[in-house]
Simulated scan of single mutants.
Amino acid sequence: MNNQCNPMQQLRKHFSIYVEASKTTPTRAGKEPKDVWVVSGVLDGLVDFIYQLGARKYKGKFSLYDDPSIAILNHLKENGRKSMSEVKKEQQVRDAEKSQKFTLYAQSNAAKSIERFETAKAAVENIPFGQPILVDHYSASRHRAAINKSNVNMRKSIEHDDKSSYWSRRARTKEIKSTGEYSLNYIANRIKECSSKLRKYKRWSEAAEKLGDHDEVIRCSDLIAIQTDQLSYWKEEMHSQYGDKKDNSSRIVAGKTEILYRGTWYPVKRVNTKTITISNWLRVENATWLVQKEKVEGVRNVGGLNE
């Protein structure tokens, strides 16, 4: 038992990773619960490895049938955590693959929708519009059957069309994620968040050193390394996607550039001493608005290319 607890304690004390013994909760009558291990905590850069161990995710935690403590601990000691850049690149590849798969689902359901619609239309094409069912006539049973067939297929057509729209939205979302492009506000918030966490973990580390808590110093060092890597990644994304905000004012030219203001790009109509006049305000062609230069979030050439 001590051999099992030791790796679990090391993961908890040094890496903020919690491995806990639990049991399944079967809903089928007579089925016995099984022993499982639940993994949670700071899993940055480890998610792919945990999946490779056979884990399944449920409510933000990972569950496995075998104790993963030793495997995770050895992996951390030998390979460490993946960098944010590696994780994002792999995620973008998976998102691109999912986008293609979801697009095929959408196309398949669209084709089925059209097929069902044509079947529904063909079922009643020989019945004049508005023709009532002639009760006690020999054609009444065929008339009812044709209406029922048309109704069933039309409902199925609508159902497949809804599925096609659903998968199209999913495909579009994954396609956007696969590009690795983020809004300026999103990146700025991530930088702010990482900076705040980094300062907090450094304070914790300094306090642990004063108290002589060696385990806490190691744990804080791991947390600091994670946040330093993430902060570096988001700063690089800010620079590559939006450039340096400090020289925005000198790059703004009326009629040739657009500025990013409150998450939206606007054409520059006039450059003033302290403000910039933008057009297309509130998507009204002739409407203009004054923006303070310090509130400009980004600059790009007309046509959508960053300088």
Rank of each mutant, 00 (worst) to 15 (best):
Q9L: 10
S205E: 15
G298T: 08
Y138S: 09
G180C: 03
L184N: 08
Q100E: 15
N2G: 07
L46Q: 12
T275G: 09
C220Y: 00
H75S: 10
V299F: 02
Y105S: 10
S113E: 15
K202T: 11
S22N: 12
S250G: 15
L134E: 11
I70W: 03
E297G: 06
K202M: 12
W167H: 13
R94W: 10
T257P: 03
I114T: 15
L231K: 03
M84P: 06
V135S: 12
V296Q: 04
A55P: 11
G130Y: 03
G41P: 05
A55G: 14
T119G: 09
V38P: 08
R169G: 08
E209D: 10
Y233R: 04
E297F: 01
I114F: 12
G30F: 13
Q10H: 04
F49S: 06
S108D: 12
A188T: 13
V42W: 00
E294H: 10
W289F: 13
V291G: 08
I50W: 15
R190W: 11
K235I: 02
Y266L: 07
E181Q: 09
L231P: 10
R56M: 13
Y261F: 13
L43K: 06
V39A: 04
E297M: 01
G54F: 06
E159H: 13
V93I: 12
E216Y: 02
S150G: 07
R283G: 09
Y65G: 01
N185L: 13
W289I: 11
K210R: 03
A29Y: 12
S63C: 10
F62I: 07
K235Y: 07
S165E: 10
N126D: 09
D48Q: 12
P128H: 08
Y18Q: 04
Q91H: 03
A123E: 05
K174T: 10
Q241R: 04
N126H: 02
Y186P: 05
T275R: 11
A123T: 02
Q227D: 08
Q230D: 14
Y261Q: 01
F129W: 05
K112A: 13
W289L: 10
V296F: 02
R94A: 11
K89Q: 15
K34T: 15
A21P: 14
D44Q: 03
Y138L: 01
S240G: 02
I114H: 14
A120I: 07
S195P: 03
S164Y: 08
E97R: 00
D136Y: 06
A145M: 11
S221V: 04
T25G: 04
A96L: 13
R170C: 15
V253N: 04
K156T: 11
E125I: 07
K59Y: 06
L290Q: 06
I259T: 04
I187G: 10
Y138C: 04
V87Y: 05
N301Y: 03
T273D: 14
H239F: 01
H14G: 00
A145S: 14
L46S: 10
I158C: 00
V39I: 13
D213I: 00
T288A: 08
R56A: 13
Q4C: 10
D247S: 08
V42H: 00
